[in-house]
Computed example of a mutant assay.
Amino acid sequence: MSPSRSLIRASRLASSLALVLGTARLSDAQTLGGQVVQLDTKKPLAGAGVALVDDSALVVASASASSEGSFYLDAPKPGAYRLVLLVSGGSFVSPSVQLDAGKTIERLFSVPDIPSTFAAARFARDVTKPAVPVPGSRGPVYPAGLAEQGMRATISTMFVVDETGQPDLSTFRVLNTAPNERFVESIREALQRTRFVPARKDDDWVSQVVQYTYDFGLAGDPERGDVVVRAGASNGGTPSVARAARVDARTPVKTMYVITADELSKPDIEQMNLSEALHHLRPKLFGPSRNATVTTQYEPPVFVNDVRVEGMASLRNITAGHVEEVRYWKREEAAMRFGMDYPFAVTVKLRPDRS
């Protein structure tokens, strides 16, 4: 299952959990049972909401954990399911669990405290569109030597993706015990080079707590994670997240750093001068609107159709609706592309009929 689908499904669960809590036990049912505990202390979490969700994001059973944190949920038929746990401050989605006909599986489900660093971030259920990796993102690689030992791992993680699409590694947490720490290091290294299309809340870019399960396995193993890494794969361990992100090559990728004609041609934007429009659309990058008409000595460079112009002030002479794309280049990107050490650079591509 792709992370974009699983996160979108998780965001729909909040409304679905209005179902009647608790269901009658069926004698011939396939059942998931267990206990919900706090990750660090292992203290039972009495009253935690639990919901069993099928592969179509439908809640098939729900309940509240007992005073000892225990619960049992019956599935209507055999198959793969996930458990969604609702606790104060957030929601958590388990890796996929296979339920066989007439059998009961019991597991321990650990839930972390919500770190203070997550206070300003939203969970998937709280956003209009969840954060997803930019198409072509390359995931973790299988640590060398571990596949030869037959070592597999399912690693559940959570971290914040900020409003610019950058994973905040200071918030990275592992929610279960890894059989080898090198699996965790591989995930960290992958996140350092991964960029996301940030989450949206209505018309705003927002930070979001992302929860991914990484499934490290051998060829032929069933896929049971948001990000699937298979040893010896010809793609070098490209996970399912990267494959799933390529939804439609014709669809433009909207990120914090690229402003397309779709945004610039909106009725309330298209008649603005480009400088004003950028301040309005990306205040986190360009700051609040300002009336500067003179370029300062240290202002980052601006290029229009590959020709350098007189800084941001010159963009006041361009109408937003005449522009095809504006791209913001971060310091390291600007240095590689333009050979300059500036905080950032800006490139503007005019529509062909306005060039």
Results as ranks from 00 to 15, higher is better:
75 A>C: 09
73 L>H: 05
70 S>P: 11
89 G>V: 02
75 A>M: 06
64 S>Y: 04
97 V>Y: 00
86 L>S: 15
89 G>Y: 05
74 D>W: 01
68 E>Y: 15
76 P>M: 08
96 S>A: 14
68 E>L: 12
77 K>A: 09
70 S>H: 06
100 D>T: 11
86 L>D: 08
69 G>P: 07
86 L>Y: 00
65 A>W: 01
90 G>L: 04
95 P>H: 13
97 V>K: 02
90 G>V: 03
61 A>W: 08
83 L>T: 06
99 L>E: 02
63 A>Y: 13
97 V>E: 01
77 K>H: 04
65 A>T: 15
81 Y>G: 04
100 D>H: 08
87 V>Y: 00
99 L>N: 02
66 S>Y: 09
57 A>D: 15
93 V>L: 05
85 L>F: 02
79 G>N: 02
99 L>W: 03
79 G>P: 00
76 P>C: 10
71 F>T: 13
67 S>L: 15
93 V>A: 02
98 Q>F: 14
69 G>V: 11
66 S>M: 05
78 P>S: 04
79 G>V: 09
60 V>N: 00
57 A>C: 10
94 S>Y: 02
83 L>K: 04
98 Q>N: 11
78 P>D: 03
83 L>C: 07
93 V>W: 07
91 S>G: 15
83 L>W: 06
87 V>E: 10
96 S>T: 14
56 S>Q: 11
63 A>F: 12
83 L>S: 12
87 V>M: 05
91 S>K: 07
95 P>R: 12
93 V>Y: 05
63 A>C: 06
94 S>R: 08
71 F>Y: 13
75 A>V: 08
74 D>Y: 03
94 S>P: 12
86 L>G: 14
78 P>N: 01
97 V>Q: 12
61 A>P: 06
85 L>C: 09
98 Q>A: 14
64 S>H: 11
88 S>P: 06
84 V>E: 13
100 D>L: 12
67 S>P: 07
60 V>S: 03
90 G>C: 01
74 D>F: 03
93 V>H: 02
75 A>Y: 01
